[in-house]
Amino acid sequence: MPGRCLFCLGVSQDSRPWCEACLAALPWNRTACPRCGEPQPGQAVGRVCGHCLRHPPAFDRTRVALRYEDEVAILLQRFKFHASPRAGAVLLALLEVGCRPMSGQAPQALLAVPLHPHRAHQRGFDQGRWLAERLAARQAIPLLRAQRHRDTPSQRGLDRRRRRGNLRGAFSVTGPLPARVALLDDVMTTGATLDALARACRRAGAEQIEAWAVARTPLESP
Rank of each mutant, 00 (worst) to 15 (best):
P218D: 15
V45R: 15
A140G: 08
L94I: 06
R47G: 04
A192R: 04
D60C: 09
D60R: 04
G191F: 01
P41S: 07
T189S: 15
P153F: 11
D14H: 12
C52T: 12
V45S: 10
A179I: 00
V11R: 11
A73Q: 14
A211Q: 03
A89G: 08
A24T: 13
Q13F: 15
Q43P: 00
C201Y: 06
H51K: 05
T193A: 05
C201M: 10
R160C: 00
L75G: 02
V214D: 13
S15P: 01
Q208R: 14
L91Y: 10
A73D: 06
E96D: 04
L75Y: 02
P178Y: 09
A32P: 14
L177Q: 07
A89Q: 15
L131A: 04
P57T: 06
A179C: 02
T174G: 05
L144S: 09
D195W: 02
R202G: 00
S12L: 13
L66T: 07
Q139N: 04
A204E: 05
W28D: 12
C52N: 12
R54S: 12
W28K: 11
L183Q: 07
T190Y: 06
A24Y: 01
A215I: 04
C52H: 09
L94M: 07
A137C: 08
C52P: 12
P222I: 09
G157V: 06
